[in-house]
């Protein structure tokens, strides 16, 4: 394990457990080796086999908490916290805050009043810093993005901080609409513009303009959704970096 070859370490710990099945340290190390060799599901399965519902010691509680958060199994995390009899109140609060941040439901609450249902008393200043930053993140409404793009193509993307994509959408729609207009309205010998509904150019570019306009509405919705998801992902990764590091 010291050389970070956790896959080999897991095989070794399994051998140790074969010889001494009730060795608690070997169990703990096997679970840790599985988790660190990117097999958290395997580790969680082992832990549940050995301790299906019994109270967990501090070390096992910490492993179980890391595993459930890695797997994104938040109901199981709640159960682990209930069984973690050796963890202090502050420690539990730290982990619960981490789980709340990683779950990402805070994005749906109003920015300044994003508070979990439990009292925040974390000891880790890094986690508190992440928590305080969630209050400043503005959620983008996909419906508002679509509405904005209805009025001005690309505006919904600009609202979702994708201003370059927004400008490109505007350019695509405007260029095709302009070409369509030029196709339909042509000047005669006297210089008077007349509408020609049989213009092929008009219909082709008109069709393209409608296509790009509809796609721009969809793209704005997607852009706002992606923005929200990126915000929660960033917070999740930072929280992971604090809690699941060793």
């Amino acid at each position: 394990m010291q050389s970070h070859d956790y896959q080999l370490a897991a095989a070794e710990w399994e051998r140790v457990l074969f010889l001494s099945p009730s060795d608690t340290l070997a169990r703990l190390n096997l679970i840790k080796s599985f988790r660190l060799s990117d097999k958290p599901a395997e580790a969680w399965k082992k832990l549940n086999t050995w301790y299906p519902s019994a109270p967990l010691t501090k070390q096992f509680s910490l492993e179980a908490a890391q595993l459930t958060l890695t797997l994104g199994d938040f109901p199981a995390f709640g159960s682990v916290m209930d069984r973690a009899v050796d963890l202090s109140g502050a420690e539990k609060s730290t982990w619960k805050l981490g789980a709340w941040l990683m779950e990402g439901e805070w994005i749906n609450q109003p920015p300044k009043s994003r508070n979990p249902s439990f009292t925040v008393a974390s000891m880790d200043p890094r986690l508190l810093n992440i928590y305080s930053r969630t209050k400043d993140i503005n959620r983008k409404s996909p419906a508002a993005a679509v509405a904005l793009s209805c009025i001005v193509p690309g505006m919904g993307k600009i609202y979702s901080h994708d201003w370059k994509d927004g400008l490109m959408s505007l350019l695509f729609v405007a260029a095709n609409a302009w070409q369509s207009y030029r196709g339909f309205w042509k000047k005669d010998e006297l210089g008077i513009a007349k509408f020609n509904p049989k213009s092929v150019t008009g219909w082709v570019f008109g069709g393209l303009a409608v296509g790009f306009y509809s796609a721009n509405l969809f793209g704005s919705w997607k852009s706002a959704t992606l923005y929200n998801s990126n915000q929660t992902d960033r917070i999740r990764h930072e929280t992971e970096g604090v809690l699941i590091t060793h």
Partner: peptide, 20 residues
């Protein structure tokens, strides 16, 4: 919906938004 997604992808295929 995928058709609109595909057309939207064409408008994004320019490399001007690399950080995304």
């Amino acid at each position: 919906t995928g058709l609109f997604d595909a057309i939207d992808r064409l408008t994004r295929c320019n490399g001007i938004n690399p950080k995304k």
